[in-house]
Simulated assay, not measured.
Amino acid sequence: MRHNDRADESDKRTLRREVLRVRSGLTADDVRVSAAALARWALALPELAHARTVAAYVSVGSEPGTLALLDALRARGVRVLLPALLPDNDLDWAAYAGEGSLAPVRHGGRMTLLEPTGERLGPDAVTEADAVLLPGLAVDARGMRLGRGGGSYDRVLARLDRAGARPALVVLLYGSEVVGHIPEEPHDRPVHAVVTPSGVRRFGRPGDGTADETP
């Protein structure tokens, strides 16, 4: 590993710790209010308004809340796919059938996730999505996303590339998690938009430097 690579990874670890520290101070009411605002902004996105299939995830703890958004998409008739973590950190997928179709699954000593209980559709099911909602800890001014470091969504994005699939990539965050710069690796792909409780920031095509914000 080169010196710059080590420095970049150290910067990522520091940013992850800081984001998680701030999130840990949020109350359940903070998360609930933010989730409602996130859902309102996300549902207005053209990428979701016209989507037939959306790959998403179930938030846990103090993550930006997704359940209100998942239920609203399902009420629209959208097919919502949710992930199930596999032993190798890859993701399988199943259709969301309401909050009652979720079950807590503990993955070793790491974390407990809410996962769908329905029929597993295989890791390639994500390639059918018109939009993919990505979890994250931060995003920068270019749309580069900082994940938790497990690599699950790196595999998802690589799978989409191999399949020639081009869904809209959207990350859901709190406002303070939109930062100036995140070190990138060759496999990293920018997202197309970030939704926060206060609005939407959309990123231009890679390399053209354009972005816009709502409001």
Rank of each mutant, 00 (worst) to 15 (best):
P104R: 12
G199Y: 05
P87Q: 01
V191F: 07
R205I: 09
L134A: 04
R159Y: 08
M144A: 14
E9L: 14
V139Y: 00
L172S: 08
E213F: 13
E99T: 14
A129L: 06
A193K: 00
L26W: 10
A55D: 07
R142V: 02
K12G: 01
V195S: 00
L15Q: 12
S24K: 09
D90H: 10
V80M: 02
E115R: 05
L157E: 04
D29Q: 14
V195F: 00
R52W: 05
H107S: 10
G143K: 00
D11P: 02
A125M: 07
G164T: 03
V194S: 02
V191W: 02
M144P: 02
T210V: 13
L86Y: 12
D188E: 04
V178R: 03
M1Q: 13
G209T: 11
P83D: 08
R106K: 15
R145E: 01
G136C: 07
L70E: 00
A68C: 11
M1Y: 12
A129Q: 03
A141T: 15
L69G: 04
L48G: 00
P87I: 01
A94M: 08
V139A: 08
R32G: 11
R74F: 09
K12T: 05
S62C: 14
T53R: 10
A51K: 02
D140K: 09
L48C: 09
A84I: 15
D92H: 04
D30I: 04
V54S: 01
L48R: 00
L67V: 15
L48A: 02
D71L: 11
L26I: 04
V170R: 01
P183C: 08
R32A: 13
S62A: 15
W93A: 03
A49Q: 12
R110P: 06
L48I: 13
D154T: 10
V126P: 05
